[in-house]
Amino acid sequence: MRDFYGVTLPSALMLGTARYPSPAVLEAAFRSSGAAVATVSLRREQGQGGAFWDMIRELGVRVLPNTAGCHSAREAITTAQMARDLFDTPWIKLEVIGHADTLQPDPFGLLEAAEALAADGFEVFPYTTEDQVLAQRLLDAGCKVLMPWGAPIGSGLGLNNRYGLRMLRAAFPDVPMVIDAGLGLPSQAAEAMEMGFDAVLLNTAVAEAGDPAAMARAFALAVEAGAAARAADPMEPREMASPSTPLIGKGWL
């Protein structure tokens, strides 16, 4: 697996920590899946912050703070600075949201924030679209990882633009890329890995499943299967049938 800012992860599954029915279920989902990274946020204290943080620390996973909910570069930069101060990591999942309905990244604000944060020593994981031009600009800004969306956050629609994602993967074969957001089913995560992506990050598909721990495990297996398939060099599809059983030696009936 490609590394993320010099870190090789034991699993290609990254999990969000929001929307679980209870902290115990969240913990079970991490334990059953072996997810290597937990995304977290910064919010005003509502009486739960301390217990939540203690639980995340006990999971022993790497923490990826986000700038979720930020709609401007300025807001995202300040949030990232606060996150680094609090979580003691240079990693930041950079979200600059451009549209309230689709939660689509604002490419202009994203690039502005990425430039500022990379120059300030952050290791930026930009939540981006599959746009190749934007990807190049983010790389030029100092990002060494890209996180293209599969579909809008929380939608569960899977890989919305397979062509765009394939082109992005092919255009930057050496850049570590995480499919972030929009996955609803393990088969979609397996497909992302088969396409050559390096990891997937998801939250709602697990947290809102009837049995989140079982679904987390299913995603972990799918990610492993997809990565193994990619490494095994899949056959090329073809339009016409090609018999797998040899014709030579067939009986004359």
């Binding site: 969000g16 929001a18 946020s41 986000n66 979720a68 957001a181 709602t204």
Partner: peptide
Amino acid sequence: LEVLTPMQGG
């Protein structure tokens, strides 16, 4: 003054 703490996030 904003005082923020670790919270759940995706």
